[in-house]
Amino acid sequence: MYFVYKNYNASVLGILGGVSSSNIIMERVVEAYVGEYASGKSEVAINRALELKEQSWEVTLVDLDTVEPFYTLRPLKALLEKKGITVVGWEAKETFGLGETGGLIKPAVRWVLKRSGCIIMDIGYGVHGAHTLNLVEGAYDDPHLKVLAVVNVARPMTATVGDIIDYVKHLGRVDGLVSNNHLGNDTTVEFVEQGHRVVLEAAESLGIPVVCAAVDERLREEVAKIDFAGVPVRYIKRYMPGAIW
């Protein structure tokens, strides 16, 4: 048996169950998504924010990508706000003219944990990115905060059990893994299944749970046959291909 839920308190079990309307989340969710560059942090964070919004939560999505103006939430900010999410981060046009200095975080990010409702933080750029959580006032004292590492075995630096273990150990505090195994448009059910097994094994060795498996919603019917070993599945709609800049 894989180690999945152990040591998780009630609020986290709430997170785990947040897949359908039958699993209503009762307590405020505060999650920081960290992980390898291009592992899917932003995509998972956006989908999580939208899922919580659907459950009538007040949701703030925070852009903590401090490095470069590429593939961040910026180009999607307006779209997400239309869907009722508060996005704390720059809009692409606000950084017009800043050039490389456009890598600064929006000052409001620092105080974001003082806000009410659910807070989803998208923390860019790998190991160094994970440390930028320091910039958020009170981050490590927040009783609700869960730091979740997004893992895709199609990323060569996190392709094997050993690679994932080494990588996650470098990230600092990690409370759970998100099993996000895909090959973009080339994703197959077999790939999702094999990847998930690798992530489960790594999580077991690390002694942390796999909080969910993220799967492209287009594969919803096909993955029904997969045994996710009790890990809830979050069906992901892909927004990031529209965020190239």
Binding site: A154, R155, H182
Partner: peptide
């Protein structure tokens, strides 16, 4: 031969 999902810069390093 392995399928991978990568950024172009990483592809260059691996190549």
């Amino acid at each position: 031969t392995k399928k991978a999902f990568m950024t172009g810069n990483e592809v260059v390093a691996w190549a």
